[in-house]
Simulated scan of single mutants.
Amino acid sequence: MSQAQLMDGTGLARRIVDETAKRAADLTERTGVAPCLATVLVGEDPASVTYVRMKQNRSRKAGIESRHVALSAGTTTAELIGTLTGLSADPTVHGILLQHPMGHHIDERAAFEAIAPEKDVDGVTLASFSAMSFGLPGFASCTPGGIMRLLDEYDVDPAGKRAVVVGRSAILGKPVGMLLLGRDATVTYCHSRTADLSAVVREADIVVAAVGRPRLIRGEDIKPGAVVVDAGYNPGNIGDVDFDSARERASLITPVPGGVGPMTIATLLAQTVEAATRQTGA
C-alpha cells in the first residue's frame, strides 16, 4: 500500500481566510461595520500570549478588527465574568475569544457561560454545544469545525463510516464526535479508561486523535485505508499519532504541524465574520 496522502490544512486555511477577508470587506462596504473580535487573556502564560498575538495578526489580515483585554493572573472569576458580560453587551464587538487555560482559581465553565451565544465564535458555551449537537444554527467549536471542513475538502463522507474519537474534552473530543454523528457516522469515544484502545482504533474508518499524549496511536493500530486526523499537539511539534508508521497504513492523514492547527484559526475568523453578519442583519 502506498503512503497516505497528506491533508493540507495550511493551504485550505489560507483559502478560507482569503474568502473570509472578502466577506469582511463586503460587509464593511455595505454596512459601514467592520467585524470585531475581542480576545481576553488572564495572566501571562507565554504560550497563550503567543497564541493570542497570532490570532490578532491573522484577524487583521482578514479585515477583522481586534480588541485585546489583558487581565492580571490574580483576576477573580467574578471580575472575569464582569469583563465578558460587558463585551457581550458591546454592540461594536461581534465575537469573543476567552483564551484558556485561565488558572485553577477561575471557574472556567462559569466564565465561558458569560459569553453571549451569538458572540461565542469559539464555540465554547453550553448553548453552542447544544445547537451544534441538534444541528441548529450556532457556532461549532473551532477545532472540530475545522476538522469537518478538512474532511469535506478531501471528499471524506462520514455517513455510514465507523469513527473513533480518542479524547473527550469539552472543546474538542466531545464536539467533534457530535459533528461526526450529525453526518451519520457511527461514533465511538475512547479515553484514558478505554480497555484495549488499540483494538477499538483498529475498527475505525476515521480516527480523530485528540487526547494530548504524544504518539499514542501507532501505525499498527490503524486500519488499512483509514482516514487519520491528528488533533494533538505536544512539545516538539509531535502529535498524538506516530506519523511515520501511521502514514504507511492510512489513506489520508493530517501532518503536525500544518494539518488541524491552521484550520482552527481559520474557522474562528470565518465564524467571527458570520457573527458580525448576523448581528448587523446583513
Score class of each variant (00 low, 15 high):
164 V>W: 02
185 A>H: 03
106 I>W: 09
224 P>Y: 07
225 G>W: 10
204 A>E: 07
147 I>K: 12
229 V>P: 08
228 V>I: 02
182 G>M: 03
225 G>I: 13
222 I>A: 07
181 L>G: 11
233 Y>W: 13
222 I>C: 08
197 L>M: 11
218 R>W: 00
126 L>A: 14
115 I>S: 04
196 D>S: 13
160 G>V: 10
202 R>I: 01
114 A>W: 06
145 G>P: 09
124 V>W: 00
168 R>P: 10
160 G>R: 06
131 A>C: 05
131 A>W: 00
173 G>I: 07
113 E>N: 06
218 R>G: 05
186 T>V: 13
157 D>L: 11
195 A>N: 12
115 I>H: 06
203 E>D: 15
161 K>Y: 09
216 L>M: 15
131 A>D: 08
203 E>M: 14
206 I>V: 13
163 A>I: 06
189 Y>C: 14
197 L>W: 03
213 R>T: 14
134 F>E: 15
211 V>R: 07
186 T>K: 01
170 A>L: 15
130 S>C: 12
177 G>A: 05
196 D>Y: 02
105 H>V: 02
115 I>E: 03
227 V>H: 06
219 G>S: 05
188 T>S: 15
170 A>F: 01
213 R>H: 11
231 A>L: 02
229 V>W: 08
129 F>C: 10
126 L>F: 12
141 S>Q: 07
220 E>C: 03
116 A>P: 01
193 R>D: 12
128 S>L: 02
159 A>L: 09
171 I>D: 08
121 V>P: 02
160 G>Y: 12
122 D>N: 10
221 D>G: 02
132 M>E: 06
147 I>D: 10
116 A>N: 04
112 F>Y: 15
221 D>A: 12
151 L>C: 09
209 A>Q: 07
194 T>K: 09
117 P>Q: 11
128 S>K: 05
232 G>P: 08
139 F>N: 13
144 P>N: 07
151 L>E: 09
129 F>R: 14
128 S>V: 05
181 L>R: 12
125 T>F: 02
153 E>G: 07
189 Y>N: 14
223 K>A: 11
